[in-house]
Simulated assay, not measured.
Amino acid sequence: MPSHQLFRFPKPQWLNSASARTAGIYIAGALFSIALFTLIDAATYSRSSLNGSDPEVHMNFVDWVPGICSAVGMLIINSIDKSRLSADTFSYSGDGVAWKARLVLFLGFAAMAGGLAGGVTVMVLKYVLPDYGFPTLWMGVANVVANSLVMLSSVVLWVSQNMEDDYTYNLAL
Rank of each mutant, 00 (worst) to 15 (best):
V128W: 15
S46N: 03
P135D: 14
K126V: 10
G118D: 01
A20N: 08
A142F: 05
S148Y: 02
M1H: 06
D41H: 02
R47T: 12
H4N: 13
A172D: 00
Q5L: 15
A20Q: 08
D165W: 03
Q5I: 09
L39M: 10
P10M: 06
L36P: 00
G133H: 04
G94S: 12
V104T: 14
R8S: 13
F7Q: 14
G114Y: 05
S53R: 01
A71S: 13
A146F: 08
I27N: 07
A111W: 04
C69E: 01
S46D: 02
S91K: 09
G94D: 15
L75S: 13
D165T: 13
V62W: 07
G29D: 11
G24Y: 03
L116C: 09
T121V: 12
T38P: 00
D131Y: 11
M151I: 06
W138I: 10
D95E: 15
N170C: 02
G96V: 03
S160R: 03
A23G: 05
G29W: 02
A111N: 05
A18E: 15
I80G: 03
F109I: 09
D63N: 13
A23S: 12
T136H: 03
L173K: 00
I80M: 10
A111L: 15
A101V: 01
W64Q: 08
N60I: 09
A113N: 06
S160T: 00
I34Q: 04
L105A: 14
V159K: 03
G96L: 13
N51P: 01
E56N: 08
A18W: 07
S93P: 08
L39Y: 03
L173Q: 00
T38I: 07
L6P: 00
S148A: 13
H58W: 01
L137Q: 06
G29L: 07
S49D: 13
I34F: 05
G119N: 12
A101W: 04
N60Q: 10
S86E: 12
A23K: 04
F9V: 14
V104R: 15
L152M: 10
A101D: 12
L31M: 07
T121F: 15
D131N: 15
A101P: 02
V155C: 11
W158R: 10
G118M: 11
V122G: 03
S17C: 04
A35T: 00
A18F: 07
D95V: 05
S86R: 11
D63A: 14
A35E: 01
G94Q: 10
L31W: 00
W14Q: 05
N60Y: 09
D63E: 09
P66Q: 09
S46Q: 01
T38E: 03
A113V: 04
V155A: 15
N78S: 09
T89Y: 13
L152C: 10
R84M: 07
F90T: 04
G140F: 05
S49I: 07
S154I: 03
A28C: 05
F32M: 13
E56Q: 06
G73K: 04
Q161W: 03
E164M: 11
